[in-house]
Simulated assay, not measured.
Amino acid sequence: MRHKDEKKSKAIFEATIKLLNEIGFSDISMSKIAKVANVSSATIYVYFENKEDMLAKLYVKVKEKMSQQMSKGLDESLSSQELCEQLMRNSLDFIMNNKDYFLLLEQYQHSPYVERLCLDDTSSMFVGLYELFDKGKQKGELKALNTMLLLSYCYLPVTHFAKTVFKGQLEGSEENFQQIIRMSWDAVRS
């Protein structure tokens, strides 16, 4: 068995992200990834069983990074309003500083690959976040709705905001972001 080199593994992941964002799932191949990563096609199979294994591991790795960033500084000491705002700020920070990862996750979200690769259940990465929102519901600070719905109203407006900023349709100012935060809080508070 060949020795696994962390630099090669990273190059493969980065090449895959780049290509998926440029050409999408339907046109990606192991040979194209190998060429961009500057490795042989055979080298990729040292790290991954096949293309599906690589795409699944890439998705999980990026989703884990997002989960870690989104959960940063969130704990029981925050009020539900502070929790929502910090979650939204963390989400925006992740998206703006990791545009390629964000665009990749957007592609997975709109692709049959998530279902085909059994990737739709990554909710365990967000257990702590769900628990904090559940406590907010128990305190009566958040609406007594499904936690996933509440989280959607804190995350999806941020993604839409970021996309409009990326497209140059809206200024990514603090003032504009504060408006998004206020609208989201109005939607989830009890």
Rank of each mutant, 00 (worst) to 15 (best):
M1V: 10
H3Q: 13
H3W: 05
K4F: 02
K4E: 08
D5T: 12
K7H: 14
K7V: 15
K10G: 01
A11E: 11
F13C: 03
I17L: 11
I17R: 06
L19M: 03
L20R: 00
N21C: 00
F25E: 12
D27N: 03
S29Q: 06
K32R: 15
I33E: 00
V39L: 06
T43R: 02
T43C: 07
I44Q: 04
Y47C: 08
E49G: 14
L55V: 10
K57P: 00
Y59T: 09
V62P: 05
E64G: 02
E64T: 09
K65L: 09
K65Q: 14
Q68N: 14
S71P: 01
D75M: 06
L78K: 00
S79G: 13
S79E: 01
S80Y: 08
E82N: 08
E82Q: 12
C84L: 04
R89V: 12
R89I: 15
L92I: 07
Y101Q: 01
F102Q: 01
L103E: 13
Y108E: 03
S111H: 05
V114D: 00
E115K: 03
R116M: 14
L117W: 14
L117S: 02
L119R: 09
S124R: 06
M125D: 13
V127T: 07
G128V: 08
G128Y: 05
L129A: 05
L132W: 05
G136C: 01
G136I: 06
K137I: 15
Q138W: 04
K139G: 02
G140T: 01
L142Q: 00
K143Q: 07
L145T: 03
N146Y: 12
T147R: 11
L151A: 10
C154L: 07
Y155T: 12
P157D: 08
V158K: 04
H160R: 12
F161K: 02
E171C: 07
S173D: 04
S173A: 10
F177C: 07
Q179W: 09
I180S: 03
I180D: 01
I181W: 04
R182L: 12
M183P: 00
W185R: 04
D186N: 12
A187I: 08
S190C: 11
